Amino acid sequence: MASIDLGEMLDKAWADKGLPEILAAPVSALKGVSDRDGELLDEAFGVRTVADLADLKYVRWAQALAALETPAK
């Protein structure tokens, strides 16, 4: 299994947290997602946490479509 560098995905304040805490964190814990972005995601889709974003059907649909384009190795 490949290792994941949480420091590349998360703001510095969240990089040393455990997975349950990260999943319950606001989406602004993700590197590059501002507090305002989080507010807009909440308004548009009811997304408040990292787990909410991961479970958003539109995200899953987009990932599935992208996977169809990627050739199997």
Rank of each mutant, 00 (worst) to 15 (best):
G46M: 10
A62H: 09
E8T: 07
V33W: 11
E43Q: 14
A66H: 10
P71W: 04
R48N: 10
V47L: 10
T49H: 06
L65V: 13
P71F: 08
D16A: 11
L56E: 12
L41Y: 07
S34G: 11
V33D: 00
W61F: 13
D55S: 15
A62P: 00
L56H: 15
L53V: 06
P26K: 10
P26V: 02
G38K: 04
A25E: 01
D42S: 15
P20V: 00
E8P: 00
A25R: 02
K17S: 10
G32W: 01
D16C: 07
P71N: 06
P71D: 09
L68W: 08
R60E: 12
V50F: 03
M9D: 01
L56W: 15
D16Y: 01
A13E: 11
D11R: 11
A67G: 06
P20R: 00
A15N: 03
E39P: 02
L41E: 04
M9I: 10
T49A: 08
A29D: 01
D42P: 02
A15T: 10
Y58D: 14
K12N: 09
L56D: 12
A67R: 12
P20K: 03
A66M: 08
L41S: 03
L68M: 07
W61S: 08
W14V: 00
K12A: 12
G38C: 07
K73Q: 13
A24C: 04
D5K: 07
G32K: 02
V33N: 03
G38T: 07
K12Q: 12
D52P: 04
P20A: 02
A67C: 04
R60F: 03
A2D: 13
L56M: 14
R36D: 07
L40W: 06
M1L: 14
S34M: 07
A66I: 10
A13R: 04
V59I: 14
R48L: 09
L30S: 00
K17M: 08
E39F: 10
S34E: 04
E8Q: 11
D55A: 15
L10I: 00
K12Y: 09
K57S: 12
T70M: 13
S28K: 11
V50A: 00
R48W: 06
E21S: 06
L19M: 08
L56Y: 15
D11Y: 02
E21N: 05
L65C: 12
Q63C: 14
A66Y: 06
D55K: 15
L19D: 03
L56G: 02
L41D: 04
G7T: 09
E21H: 03
L30A: 02
V50I: 05
L65G: 03
A13C: 02
G7I: 06
E8W: 05
T70R: 14
K31A: 07
I22S: 01
R48C: 10
L10W: 04
A44I: 08
D16T: 09
L19C: 01
E69H: 08
A72R: 15
R48V: 10
A54Q: 12
